[in-house]
Design a protein around this nucleic acid. Sequence first.
DNA 1: CCTATAGCCTGACGGC
DNA 2: TGCCGTCAGGCTATAG
Length: 274
Amino acid sequence: MPELPDVETMRRYLESTSLHQEIAGVEVHAAGVVPSEEVIEQTRVKELKDALTGRSFASTRRHGKWMFIALDEDSDEFLVLHFGMTGGLKYFKDMEQAPEYDRVLFRFTNGYQLAYLSMRKLGEVAVIDDVGRFVHEKGLGPDALDPGFDLATFTDAVEGRRAMVKSILMDQDTIAGIGNVYSDEILFHAGIHPRTTINHLGEETLEELFHTMKDVLKKAIEYQAEPEQFPESFITRHRHDGGTCPICGSALESVKVSSRTAYYCPNRQRKKGC
DNA sequence: CCTATAGCCTGACGGC
DNA sequence: TGCCGTCAGGCTATAG
């Protein structure tokens, strides 16, 4: 689930539910998501609780697949969330409504609580004091939907590189926010075979790829990153064994790229060069 | 620079 | 039904 459109949807969900309420307490049900060596695990959990209790969520930001939540209006401290492959958020009141796999629970004084869920515990919950530095230290590239991330920046970033185009799209150091599913969706609409090496794309195709990337991500956000709501022309709901192209009806094929399974339409996505 | 692989963690699914 | 292998929308570290 959690690629850029999903995280953006969750960010909006958090904004519409959880801002400006005092945090009464924090429960960590699975310390695994609070990064630490085992010996200092309890210390890190305590740090998280101490940093949040009595504060409130003031505003949110997102960079790629990372969400940042400001603690109080003029604080430099941020709660940072990453959702791994199976993470999510749920705001609820009664414990009967508690979701499965709630790893960290932020309890508000109004009796409601926000749960950070992660079935596979592959995400991360931490408190940081400088978003810019955090993004820099992670080596993240520009957020895919940042208006400042324009065509020229994109072509500069891939200039001289010869990796497969799907690998480039998924490389968080190059562009932050795109994962396996949306790279497939983007390449499908751009008509590019996932194993095409990027140096074999002509200038025009590269430009089309860039605009398609922006369009697909924006469109997915419009539909709250819910594949069931996506237009029929999207490949996401069809990207499984036995799936067919929603446009031409061809049987979809799959191939490994960066150890991930890429689904594509062999008719509409011709390998270009290489 | 690039690819492939393993590992983290848990659950779903298919085959026998 | 149970057991086993494989795979899954993430990221990192490592080797070649």
